[in-house]
Simulated assay, not measured.
Amino acid sequence: MRVFLVIALACLAGGASASSPIAEVICEPTEKMTQKLSRQFGEQLHSWGTRGPEQVMQVWTDKRGDWTMVVSYATGTSCIVAMGENWEGNQAEDPA
């Protein structure tokens, strides 16, 4: 499934001339990226954190454990920077 996602997103983003479908970063307007990840591929935003004042790093996951890491920029563009399988999230323990 993950390979299909990479190929599909690469095609929708205009395709890549590199030998690997993830060799180039896939970028789209943030709203469009969010819709594809949630509606088309069934992923939900799992976690996020800021990377300076202009960037937000997000991890999207689905029920099978596939994951996608996205960086969203203040300019309104989001880019897939990594993806994989077998995501296991750890919940922070309550110190109280």
Rank of each mutant, 00 (worst) to 15 (best):
G84R: 00
E24Y: 08
D62S: 02
E43T: 09
L12T: 04
D94N: 12
S38I: 04
R2I: 13
D94M: 04
I26P: 01
I26S: 02
V71M: 15
E88K: 09
K36I: 03
G52D: 05
K36A: 11
I80F: 03
W87Q: 12
P21D: 04
Y73V: 01
P21K: 04
M33R: 03
E24Q: 09
M33F: 08
S72F: 00
M57W: 07
Q91V: 09
R39F: 10
Q91P: 00
E24P: 00
V70E: 04
K63W: 09
A10K: 04
T75L: 03
V56K: 13
L12W: 08
T50N: 07
T77D: 10
L5I: 14
V25P: 15
D94L: 05
S38Y: 10
W67D: 14
P29G: 05
M1S: 14
K32I: 07
S72K: 10
P29W: 05
R39A: 11
H46D: 14
G49C: 13
Q35W: 07
K36G: 04
E88W: 00
N90T: 08
K36P: 06
K36Q: 09
P21Q: 02
L5R: 12
I7N: 12
W67S: 15
I80C: 07
D94G: 04
S19M: 10
T77F: 01
Q58S: 13
M57K: 06
V3L: 14
K36R: 10
Q91N: 06
R64G: 13
E28V: 03
E88L: 03
M83F: 03
E54F: 03
E88I: 01
P21N: 03
L45Y: 03
P95H: 01
G65V: 05
E54Y: 06
L9F: 08
T34D: 11
T75C: 13
V81T: 12
S78A: 15
P53F: 09
T61Y: 00
V70F: 01
E93L: 14
E88G: 06
G84Q: 02
M69F: 11
L12V: 08
I22L: 12
T68A: 05
L12I: 06
T68H: 02
K36V: 04
E54D: 14
P95V: 09
Q91F: 06
D94K: 06
G42Q: 11
W67K: 09
S20C: 07
T75H: 05
P21Y: 04
A8V: 13
T50V: 05
M57C: 10
G14T: 05
E24V: 08
A10N: 07
G52C: 01
D66C: 02
A82Q: 10
W48K: 15
W87L: 02
R64C: 11
N86D: 15
G42N: 11
F4G: 12
C11Y: 08
I7W: 00
V25K: 15
I22S: 13
I7F: 00
V56C: 03
P53G: 10
K32D: 10
E54A: 11
A10D: 10
L45Q: 03
D66G: 02
A92V: 15
